[in-house]
Simulated scan of single mutants.
Amino acid sequence: MGGEVDLYTAPQLRSELVGALDEGARRLLVDMSRVEFCDSTGISVLLSAMKRSRDKGGDLEIVAPRPAVTKVLEVTGLDEVFVIHPDLDALPVAAGTGTAP
Rank of each mutant, 00 (worst) to 15 (best):
Y8N: 08
L13N: 06
A25Q: 07
P101D: 12
D59F: 03
A94T: 15
P101L: 04
G24M: 01
L7G: 10
C38I: 12
G57D: 14
L73N: 08
K56N: 12
A49C: 08
G3I: 02
L28Y: 02
G98T: 11
G98F: 04
E23D: 15
S53M: 07
A94Q: 13
R54H: 07
R52W: 02
V93Y: 07
G2P: 04
D55T: 08
V45H: 04
L91W: 03
R27V: 14
V83A: 13
K51F: 01
G19M: 06
S40L: 06
S44N: 11
L88G: 11
D31H: 10
Q12A: 08
V5N: 02
A100H: 09
S40T: 15
H85Q: 12
D89C: 03
S48T: 13
G3Y: 03
V45M: 03
R34H: 07
L47G: 07
P92H: 11
S33M: 00
V5P: 01
L46R: 01
L91T: 14
P86H: 09
D55W: 01
R52L: 14
D59Q: 12
R14Q: 12
I43L: 08
L73H: 09
G98V: 05
L60W: 05
L73K: 04
Y8H: 07
R66G: 08
V72C: 03
L17R: 06
L28A: 06
L17Y: 03
E36S: 13
E4Y: 05
S44R: 08
F37E: 10
M50C: 05
A20G: 11
V72A: 05
I43P: 01
A10V: 01
E61F: 02
G2L: 03
S48V: 02
A90C: 10
E4Q: 14
R14F: 00
D89T: 12
I84H: 07
S15F: 01
L29M: 11
R52V: 06
E74F: 00
R26A: 04
E36P: 02
M50Q: 12
V45E: 11
L91V: 12
I62L: 15
D59R: 10
T70I: 02
G77R: 05
R14P: 01
T70Q: 09
L91H: 11
